[in-house]
């Protein structure tokens, strides 16, 4: 699936593409669903526009048999917690907001993810608090008030490109995890392994979030960065629509000839949109695909999430994700979220 958001918020437009890994389709391995999930949401809080993107990578092994659900819960929780942070700090100055993010986002998102997993276990069955079944990484980028908020747990890559085309990985830490090992939302002290920081947006041109299936398709970091430069240049030259339209075939090729893994690439472009102004509709109406919970609906049927938005949240375009309607959705009643009714299905 490929998807792009055309809703300039602070002159930010976004694209996303998630593809099932080539090795997951192989006949000698039991086929497994795509373990990657992403969610992009935009709107405003007390007049402050925001864009949030979250990407998660489920672990996919037999021990983590619901990790595709865990990944969807992780991406969704990241968005919800960030929105709540904005609501709770809507009267605060930017420095206070920054501190609130770095201090509390890791713990809050971990806590809320566990709650979401517990509710899913209650509805769908399983040993209580068996978080490992839902193990997932998490990447998040949020833009509000000329600030860039970044958070990362586990593998996957967040690359920030400045206006002078310098590429950096501000959340990269060299460690001793090898051969697919990663910290996870299901790790006991997950919040301690998060990296969260903020940056001024003024110098930023492009931010990408990608699961490790993409970088693992390249022998060197330089080759990986050249790919991201190529994506960015395509956007500048051909516009977001045409640039993102080639992603599915290329990500499939990268997986087949490179990592074999699921690959997700989400990008946020900052600046006057040369081609982003093309108002081509990018979503198709469907049932809400977000995973929600409800006390009144133990079966978890997909009801249109009519949670009323708090007065401080302006009506927002619906969030976009790669989760599909048949992935056990349950209605959510978190009042911090914008209304979830509306189109959520990614475009083919």
């Amino acid at each position: 699936m490929d998807y792009f958001v055309h809703d300039p918020v602070e002159n930010v437009c976004a694209f996303a593409c998630a593809r099932q890994g080539a090795s997951h389709k192989m006949q000698d391995v039991a086929p497994s669903p795509c373990q990657d999930a992403y969610l992009i949401s935009s709107g405003a809080v007390a007049g402050r526009s925001y864009v949030i993107a979250a990407v998660a990578d489920g672990h996919g092994s037999p021990r983590h048999d619901r990790s595709h659900i865990g990944a969807m819960l992780a991406s969704q929780t990241a968005v919800t917690v960030f929105q709540t942070l904005l609501v709770d700090n809507q009267e605060q100055d930017p420095d206070t907001l920054k501190l609130a993010f770095t201090d509390s986002f890791p713990a809050k998102v971990t806590q809320e993810w566990r709650k979401a997993v517990e509710k899913h276990l209650t509805h769908q069955g399983g040993a209580p608090r068996d978080y490992k079944r839902y193990g997932s990484t998490l990447l998040m980028a949020g833009i509000v008030d000329r600030l860039l908020f970044l958070a990362k747990l586990g593998d996957g890559d967040i690359v920030v490109t400045n206006r002078d085309q310098h590429q950096g990985e501000p959340l990269s830490v060299k460690g001793n995890l090898v051969a697919g090992e990663t910290f996870s939302m299901c790790t006991e002290d997950a919040e301690k392994h998060f990296i969260a920081l903020t940056m001024n947006l003024s110098d930023v041109a492009f931010v990408t979030l990608s699961t490790d299936g993409l970088r693992n398709s390249y022998e060197s970091s330089d080759a990986f960065f050249r790919l991201l430069t190529g994506v960015q240049q395509n956007i500048e030259q051909y516009g977001l629509v045409r640039a993102s339209s080639i992603l599915p075939q290329h990500l499939d090729r990268f997986s087949t000839q490179g990592s074999g893994d699921d690959i997700t690439l989400v990008g946020l472009r900052v600046g006057d949109p040369p081609e982003c102004s093309t108002p081509e509709p990018s979503v198709v109406s469907s049932e809400p695909a977000v995973i929600t919970t409800s006390d009144t609906d133990a079966e978890g049927a997909a009801t249109a999430g009519k949670a009323s938005a708090p007065p401080s949240l302006s009506p927002a375009p619906p969030p976009v994700s790669n989760s599909s309607p048949d992935t056990e959705p349950e209605p959510r009643t978190d009042a911090a979220c914008p209304p979830t009714s509306g189109p959520l299905h990614a475009r083919e």
């Binding site: 037999p62 021990r63 983590h64 490992k132 990484t137 392994h193 074999g260």
Partner: peptide
């Protein structure tokens, strides 16, 4: 060879391998 190339991530710190 098949097990090792299945290449799934797992939470770091576990003592048992995830190669099945």
């Amino acid at each position: 060879t098949v097990g090792a190339s299945a290449g799934k991530s797992k939470d770091g710190g576990a003592t048992t391998g995830n190669v099945v």
